[in-house]
Amino acid sequence: MTKTLIAASLLALCLPLTAMAGPIEGACLKSDRKQANRAVCGCIQQVADMTLTGGEQRKAAKLIRNPDQAQTVRMSKSDRDNEFWARYKTFGETAAAYCAG
């Protein structure tokens, strides 16, 4: 009985965490790309969790929602933007390799 209660408590604590989409997953699901589905976008979010900070994920999500802004960041002369772009590019390459069906 105690094991069942502990298992149920753990499940109740974990469910809200698994239901929350990260910023990349949310932007991916809202995009007009035909390949965007929960499985693919969830996979991409997992890669983002491994390669980008929370702030970088929010910035990347903005680029997914507004691809024209990506060009601005890519062409920026700012060291901060250049460092972000290098990590964003690595994230994209990793996601493509890891999440390819």
Rank of each mutant, 00 (worst) to 15 (best):
L13K: 01
M1W: 02
C99R: 05
T90L: 15
L63E: 05
A48W: 05
A19P: 00
K62I: 08
N37K: 09
R38A: 10
D81Q: 06
V40R: 15
Q69G: 06
E93I: 08
R74D: 11
K77N: 12
R58C: 00
D32M: 07
A19K: 05
K30T: 15
A60Q: 11
L15P: 00
F91E: 11
Q35V: 10
Y98P: 00
G22C: 03
R38I: 12
G54N: 10
S76I: 00
G92H: 03
Q35A: 08
Q71I: 02
G22T: 10
A96D: 07
V73W: 10
Q57V: 03
Q45W: 08
V47D: 13
L10G: 04
L17K: 02
D49W: 04
G101F: 05
A96S: 13
D32P: 05
G55Y: 13
P23H: 11
G42N: 13
C28N: 11
R74G: 01
A100S: 15
A70G: 00
N37V: 04
A61R: 10
C41G: 08
C41D: 11
Q45I: 01
A70N: 09
A86Y: 06
D32I: 02
T72R: 06
N66P: 05
C43W: 07
Q69I: 09
W85R: 06
C28Y: 11
E25K: 15
G26Q: 15
A61Q: 01
Y88A: 13
G55F: 13
C43G: 04
T18G: 09
K89G: 02
I6K: 00
D32G: 08
Q71W: 04
A48K: 08
K3H: 04
I64S: 00
Y98H: 08
S76Y: 02
N66D: 15
M1A: 09
R87H: 07
K89D: 12
L13M: 04
V73P: 03
A8I: 05
G42E: 10
S76A: 03
F84V: 12
A27S: 13
K62S: 06
